[in-house]
Design a protein around this nucleic acid. Structure first.
Lengths: 204, 204, 204, 204
DNA sequence: TATGAATGAGGCTTCATTCAT
DNA sequence: TATGAATGAAGCCTCATTCAT
């Protein structure tokens, strides 16, 4: 079997196993066995466990970014349409390529069940707290409530994820005060939510 | 030294080391040494490596959630004020307790440097793509541009984080189509951003 | 609590725990806890784990030998009566003091379940083989068969145990050939069994 | 070196070391070193310390049972001849394969020297007691004394071993009273011994 | 008499990785 | 191109045992 093919085949298995077990728990032994080859082949083609993981990472990241770009590019000139198309492609990719997304997103499976459960609990507690505030905000606004519990949960996920990710931005922008960041995020999300409740709608 | 104190001291060190090395790479040996005690003490007080990690996780999660709740509770009745105060406390906590946040957020450090770099690269590529669209959207809107590159980056981080987190929501709400999720997210973020550009501002 | 009493109390617990877990698997921690005292007390009174075990061993061995001697002594002058009484006391002791016997006899519990099972299997195979021969011998003898399967099993146990124990004798009597030992054992057991089948009976 | 061979070689060493040290005191390190290989090989071929011990146990048990069966099978039709041949093979095996027998029989070496000595002392005391009775019985019987001290010791070993082993039988036959067991054992052994003294001899 | 706190030492096990063919 | 055989290194965990009080 030609080198190119073998390599792809190993990466295929790698993605599957890394997704299932996480980086550390995955063993080269298992990957080699599932790929139907011997361990030295893995090392010959991918250098090391890390090399193999990087190859998996890069291929899947490329595919994900590619899907986003292609969709965005094909959606005309308007930037909001391009963004919309890109996001749409992203969610579709995640829905269709579970293992790829898990490897890129890594998490959960990397840690033991007990730990993963504790992490999930903590995150769930935060979500609940935030979702509660959102719900209160909605009913307080008196704007009627097209938004139910599910929606509040949706907004909470988006908000928590945004905050989570902004901690990276914060790190890269040392001048910014936590307070400033908070205000910006509130403006973006809260104003958007309020206006949506007011009937303002965006459609592609 | 009394039991209670020792336990907290071990957890202190644990948070530091787990933050620096990640769960797998952290060794109980190192933690014991930095705590100035022998390994058996760690096991006597925290049961196992996993037990120690869980203790770290729980204590720091409790502190974070506590900070959020306390701030929210002290901010009056209006939900948006409470949300604002909570977020503010969150960002302040993250800024002040680096290690705690890293342990809770885990990530990068769990993996080797090369891998963490590759992950960061992929994420940065996505960010750049998205930030570009945001910038285009802003200039297109002709609304003048109070928002510069830094702001676009901010929005991109928030948006990507939100999308990232919504993949979990998606998993828990199987009936939802990727397309529906996309639309909701666009409405929340894009409308908010547009209206902010139009001068609508939220202040606490 | 006076030293004497404490010591006996610790030994009581020791016998129980050593019987249940075997020497290695028994932990001083458990013994101290069950005795309701702290570990240093165990060391203060019994020197070491080994010292504790030896104390258990000696006390129980003394009791067993004592029971045997006392019974034998009280059974009159005829040696076979004395032997009979001693054996009787022995079996009664074993039946009544399970833990003591297990500690003296040690075995099974010393090893993991899987290993103990394997050992038991091997011994059972040997028993079956021998019991088969015994049964054959009985029916061959044409002497009618007061002895059933249960009896054959009894004889097999006795015979195998005797052989087993004679390996020690063999070791202490290097001049003896295996063949000679065999002949002696056969004479003792087989002749006895045959004569018993012929109706010769011994009663105390 | 081919896999099969290595495995046998490891088991060879295992038997030697387990016999010398006992299961718990034996270390995989030592076994690997004596086998001239690295520890991981032991685990690759035998799974675990327990797996290695079980392999030793099974191989040696198989050999012992095999020797017994083969001898018995080749000894003609008369059951007593077959039993005789089997016992003969057993004692020969034990004499020739010290380590195998120790591993199968385990004992002494499992425990520390001091403990093993104490156990031996206790057993020796019992033996002496019993042997005394036997001697007395012989001289009492007035049948002359072809049997000397050595013989009495032999009978004592057999008798004690039989009694020892019958405690297992007793456990498996709960209906049986200690007294009943005693009577049976006396009949079997004492009658045999008496008749042997009377000149009744069994020869193959 | 009694103990809470502490440790040195050592064992089993598992990898990622590489020869030699 | 392909592999069967082999290992260095390191980690988690558990004990018997002892201070200092």
């Amino acid at each position: 079997m030609p080198r190119q093919m073998r390599e792809q085949q190993i990466i295929d298995v790698g993605v599957r196993v890394f997704a299932k077990r996480g980086y550390h728990a995955a063993s080269v032994d298992e990957i080699a066995e599932l790929a139907g080859i011997s361990k030295p082949m893995v090392y010959l083609y991918l250098e090391s466990k890390e090399g193999l993981f990087l190859a998996c990472l890069r291929r899947e990241a490329g595919r994900l970014v590619g899907a986003f770009q292609e969709a965005a590019r094909g959606a005309g000139a308007a930037p909001e349409l391009r963004l919309h198309a890109g996001l749409s492609a992203f969610f579709a990719f995640v829905a269709e390529h579970r293992d790829s997304w898990i490897v890129l997103h890594r998490q959960a499976s990397e840690l033991s069940e007990a730990i993963a459960a504790a992490v999930a609990d903590a995150r769930r507690a935060v979500m609940a707290e935030v979702a509660g505030l959102i719900r209160d905000g909605i009913s307080d606004s008196g704007r009627g409530s097209q938004l139910g519990a599910e929606d509040a949960d949706f907004v909470a996920h988006a908000l928590v994820g945004a905050a989570d990710s902004l901690t990276d931005w914060m790190e890269r922008n040392p001048g910014q005060s936590p307070e400033g960041i908070t205000l910006r995020l509130m403006n973006m999300v809260w104003v958007g939510m309020r206006d949506v409740l007011d009937g303002e709608v965006w459609v592609p």
